[in-house]
Amino acid sequence: MKILIVDDEKDVEMLFRQKFRKEVKNNSLELLFAFSGQEALELLERDNPPVVMYVFSDINMPGMTGLELLKLVKTRFPEIKVSMISAYGDAENYNKAKESGAQEFFTKPIDFDSLKKEINQLMN
């Protein structure tokens, strides 16, 4: 299963590769990365239908926010599950994300055990 992680902080890639090392090594998971909302959309639009099954996006990014990306993904690719992450666990972002179709809402630092459960549920 391919998942797309969208975050403007480049060090997130190394963290995800480390936390999902086992899943990547046994080929149950392929991680793709985009460092902006626009880059994420371009990656999703490359294949029709998209090869990505799950998008995990930061909310606060320059340019297109994660919430804007969420709305576009849910409009163009309703079959793709999207979860959001924010450094701020405020009710406003949570409510906007859930109303816009987010599968789940995580706060930083990421609880990778919860995220792995979420991904495992999608794989089964």
Rank of each mutant, 00 (worst) to 15 (best):
I3S: 10
R21M: 05
P62N: 00
P50T: 09
K22A: 07
G89C: 07
K96W: 06
Q103G: 11
N26Y: 02
K74D: 10
G66F: 08
V12R: 01
K22F: 06
K74C: 11
T65A: 01
L15I: 13
R76A: 15
L70M: 07
M14P: 07
E30M: 06
R46F: 13
S86F: 05
E99N: 14
N124L: 12
E42L: 11
G101M: 09
P78F: 08
M53H: 15
I85T: 11
I85Y: 05
M53W: 10
P49W: 09
P62K: 02
E118H: 15
D58K: 02
F105S: 02
L122F: 07
A91M: 14
K10A: 00
M123Y: 13
N60S: 13
L115F: 02
M53T: 13
P78H: 06
V82E: 01
N26T: 08
I5S: 03
L69C: 04
T75K: 15
K19L: 07
E92Y: 14
K108L: 01
G89Y: 08
F33E: 03
K22W: 05
Q121Y: 13
M64K: 13
N120Q: 12
Y54D: 11
Y94M: 12
F56M: 09
R21W: 02
V24L: 00
R17A: 00
V73H: 05
E45Y: 09
P49H: 10
E118P: 09
L70K: 09
T75L: 14
D8T: 01
F56K: 07
Q38L: 13
F20P: 07
D58F: 01
Q18T: 13
V82A: 10
K25E: 10
F106H: 00
S83P: 02
M123Q: 09
N124D: 12
V6Y: 00
G63E: 05
G89E: 06
P50Y: 08
I85C: 15
I5K: 02
I85D: 00
N93M: 10
L72C: 11
N48L: 14
E68L: 12
E104V: 15
S57F: 08
F112E: 00
M14E: 15
K116S: 11
V52I: 08
K117R: 10
R21C: 08
I3D: 04
G101E: 11
I59G: 01
L44C: 07
V51Y: 12
G89P: 07
T65G: 06
N26E: 03
E92S: 13
P62R: 00
K19I: 02
V6W: 03
G37D: 01
F105H: 04
D11V: 11
I3Q: 08
F33V: 03
I80G: 04
G89M: 09
S57N: 08
E104F: 15
G89L: 06
K117M: 15
S83Y: 00
T65Y: 00
V12A: 02
V82W: 03
M53G: 14
L43M: 14
V82S: 12
Q38V: 11
L43K: 14
K25C: 04
D58P: 02
E39P: 03
M64E: 11
A87V: 04
M123E: 06
F20K: 09
F106I: 01
L72V: 15
Q121R: 15
G63F: 00
